[in-house]
Design a protein around this nucleic acid. Sequence first.
RNA 1: GAUCCCGUAGCUCAGUCGGUAGAGCACUUGACUUUUAAUCAAGGAGUCAUGGGUUCGAGUCCCAUCGGGAUCACCA
Length: 513
Amino acid sequence: MTEQEIIRRDKLKELQALGIDPYPAEMFPVSAFAADIVANYQEELLDDGTKNRLNYQDVAIAGRVMAMREAGKALFMNLQDSSGRIQLYLRREEINGGDENSPMFDTVIKKLLDLGDYVGIRGFAFRTKTGEVSVHVQEFRFLSKSLRPLPIVKRDAEGHVFDAFTDPEQRYRMRYVDLTVNPEVRETFIKRTKLIKTIRAYLDELGLLEVETPILQPIHGGASARPFKSHHNTLDMPLYMRIANELYLKRLIVGGFDGVYEMGKMFRNEGMDRTHNPEFTMLEFYVAYKDYFWLMDVTEQMLERVARALSPDGGAVMRVGENDINFAGPYTRLTMFDAIRQHTGLNVETADESELRNYCRQNGIEIDATMGKAKLIDEIFGEKVEPHLIQPTFLIDYPVEMSPLTKKHRAKPGLVERFELFVNGKEVGNAYSELNDPIDQRERFEDQLRLAARGDEEAMALDDDFLRALEYGMPPTAGIGFGIDRLTMLFTGQTSIQEVLFFPQMRPEVDKG
RNA sequence: GAUCCCGUAGCUCAGUCGGUAGAGCACUUGACUUUUAAUCAAGGAGUCAUGGGUUCGAGUCCCAUCGGGAUCACCA
């Protein structure tokens, strides 16, 4: 234990010796929040020059003590609750209740109270000489003693931050500390929740049914990725953590629901970096009798609504890094081939494989011998086009080889009816007119099996029950998936996924008390 | 998985050419009846990530390991 921790434990014993319970059981009747008092306190100036305080004259507030400034027989604290901070003003005489021998002020508060302790106080709001709305404390109670020192972050009047708690490792491992001392972290997560609620409300209004589908799946389907594998003891069979829920949601469309959505965790056993966490949140929704054009309209409406909910001024334009991004539709719609033509001059439609390979070699795009034409196109797109798609852009009509669950294009042979949405140079959504032809779907699965046989660990497994479902008949359906974490990054201006997950995956901590 | 950078007090960081560990905040003791990065005086606090090596001597140089970050590969 460190010196400061030992001192705090000694203080805890001293409090108990004085008959003060540092961890009382009874509830504390909070009647106001710090930020509300600061924002709404009112007083009037009387003719004789004195002030008449108009509201918050009997408040009970609770929170952590985040700063203390002693001034002889008076003392100032900053109290932080869930809404923000407010200054407290304590006077020796009052805290001691007129009893000269009372230990309350000089011992209990000045010595035994630490920064970080939870306290509850009763008092009245007023404005100090320097103009700060504060609470004049009349009653003071310990609610929970803190045994470890918090990092002390200080801010001056101009908002300059001193000694910020910034080490990412410590911030992620001890998110509770991060949230306590870094208010902007709190704001990011509140925005995340607001984004999710806005999307839910929109989808509910559209009339979609929110559903839950299995996380433990006997066959991992619906995406190209490596799964986590587990084992069920009683059934004595392997189970996989889902990499996607697409095939289950489509079974529900087969079952007669017109529209379903699920927002939930997916799990992929792959590398981690600032845009990948082993578990992440996806939204998928599927709507019968629609196609991918309809989904583009819906996407525009949904994201505009999210932008308006999260932007400071209620507008559809969000500042992301150095870019002002306008989420009001309609968004640019560009075929993949046109996009590549615009940014490279290549005509990938007519080019053959060797021509594409030459282009990649000349432009420093890494390729290998196993890549077919579709894969080469994807590489060129990722290198040369994707980073330039700052304003929301629908990239439409992909080669069939890369999309085993997507309906073939109604007019263009070799392509599928698929789009991906790009914003700020990154993909945030992937959608298509769903393949509902069971015979075509079986062939696509068989193509995937051939890839798997060649060693592709991410090839999709054949799901016989899903094919059976399609054989019973699935109406024409449009479906889309959004990475909620990446959307959150976009709308909060964060550049790493760890900043939008409360508890990002970390390696085990080396033993330190 | 590969490469590079980082790890010193509770927090943020200095630490020169290899010569017995430093600052600010926090903490302790004291002063102060409206302070606000409060101020003033004094003091305590370190397995320099871990383990080896080189050296008379290592926070510093070398090797390995652990953890974090960045870039790349794979992916959403």
